[in-house]
Design a protein around this nucleic acid. Structure first.
Length: 299
DNA sequence: TACCAGGATATGG
DNA sequence: CCATATCATGGT
C-alpha cells in the first residue's frame, strides 16, 4: 500500500532496514513502537508526540511519513523528528571499522556477516533507558517486556497509531511522584520499585542528566551511574550503550552475552570474566556493537 | 515441574 | 575482599 512520505532520509551504504526491523520485532510485547507490513511506527517523545511511519525504498533511503491525522507538522517538529530518527537508529556512525575487525574475529565474524546492516538501536531517553535496565535485572527478557508494558500502560501516554495504540514512556516526573505501593501491583520487586522511583527523582530533579553524563566520558560516567542505588555495573553499561551510545560500553555481566559466547565457542559452561576479556580483547572501542550483534544470535 | 532469567545489595566470613 | 543469601514473578 503506497503512502506519501513527507520526508526522506539517506542512510549509510551498509544500512539494511530489514536487519534493523528484525531487532525491533524481537518481542511481540513491545509497546513503544509497532511494525506492520514492513513499516515501523512510533510515537516520538517530542512536543506534540508526532507519530511516525517509517519505511524504506529500493535505494536504501528511509521514507518518513507522519501517520496521525493532524496533517504535516511544523518545520521545527519535522526537523526534531529527523534528528530523533538519526539518533534512535544510529544513522551517523561509520561501521566500516567494526566490520573490518569483526571479519577477522572468531567470535564476531558469523554474527557480523549474518546481521550485516544492523545498527545499535538506541533508547534516546535517559529515564527510559535506566528504567528498562532496572526492570530487566535478573528476570528473563519476556517477563521484562511484560513488566514494561504494565508500567507504560499504567503511567505512560497512549497515542493513536496505525489503527492501534502506540505509547510514550512515562515521564520521570510522574514516576517520581509515586510510592512503592503504587508500583507493587505491577509485580515488580520492592527494590525495583525503589530503584525506579529514585532514578526518576534524580532525573526529574535535575541531579542527573544525559548531557552531564555525556560530558564525563565512559569511565567517569560509569562510575557516576554505579553510585546510584540500584544501578550496578551491568545496568550502568547497558545505559551507556543504549542511551549515551558510548561504543566502548560493555555489559560484561550480561547473561545474554554469556549465552551468545557459549553458542559461538561451543562451550557448555558460562565463560569466566577473564575468558570474556580475552575473547573481547580485539573489540577495543566497539564492545557495545559487538555485544549488540552477539545478542542477535539468541533470538 | 523445576529451573532460571539482559543483577544488585546486604550480610557474614 | 570474596562468597552466599535474598529478592520474587513468570517464561519455557
Amino acid at each position: 500500500m503506497p503512502y506519501e512520505p513527507t520526508l526522506t532520509l539517506a542512510t549509510p551504504e551498509d544500512y539494511r532496514f530489514s536487519a534493523n526491523l528484525g531487532y525491533l520485532m524481537r518481542s511481540p510485547k513491545e509497546c513503544l513502537h509497532l511494525i506492520r507490513d514492513g513499516r515501523l511506527y512510533k510515537a516520538l517523545p517530542l512536543d506534540g508526540t508526532p507519530v511516525l511511519e517509517i519505511g524504506a525504498d529500493d535505494d536504501n533511503r528511509l521514507l518518513v511519513a507522519f501517520a496521525d491525522d493532524r496533517g504535516v507538522p511544523s518545520e521545527d517538529v519535522r526537523a526534531a523528528s529527523l534528528a530523533y530518527i538519526r539518533e534512535w537508529l544510529d544513522l551517523d556512525t561509520d561501521l566500516e571499522p567494526f566490520y573490518r575487525l569483526a571479519a577477522d574475529d572468531p567470535i564476531l565474524a558469523a554474527a557480523a556477516s549474518m546481521h550485516k546492516g544492523l545498527r545499535l538501536i538506541g533508547i534516546p531517553d535517559l529515564f527510559e533507558a535506566m528504567a528498562w535496565g532496572i526492570l530487566g535485572q535478573q528476570i528473563n527478557l519476556a517477563f521484562a517486556y511484560t513488566l514494561k508494558a504494565r508500567l507504560v500502560e499504567a503511567y505512560g501516554t497512549p497515542v493513536s497509531c496505525a489503527g492501534d495504540t502506540c505509547w510514550t514512556f512515562p515521564q520521570p516526573e510522574v514516576i517520581a511522584g509515586l510510592e512503592v505501593k503504587d508500583l507493587l501491583p505491577l509485580k515488580l520487586t520492592v527494590k525495583k520499585c525503589e530503584y525506579l522511583i529514585h532514578a526518576a527523582e534524580l532525573i526529574a530533579g535535575g541531579a542527573l542528566s544525559k548531557g552531564r553524563l555525556q560530558e564525563l566520558g565512559y569511565r567517569e560516567a560509569e562510575k557516576a551511574l554505579v553510585r546510584i542505588r540500584g544501578i550496578g555495573p551491568w545496568t550502568a553499561n547497558y545505559v551507556l550503550m543504549r542511551c549515551l551510545r558510548m561504543k566502548d560500553a560493555f555489559p560484561i555481566d550480561d547473561v545474554g552475552l554469556h549465552h551468545a559466547l557459549r553458542h559461538v565457542t561451543g562451550s557448555d559452561a558460562k565463560p569466566s570474566r577473564e575468558e570474556i576479556l580475552r575473547l573481547s580483547a580485539g573489540w577495543r572501542g566497539w564492545e557495545s556493537y559487538a555485544t549488540f550483534y552477539l545478542w542477535r544470535l539468541l533470538y
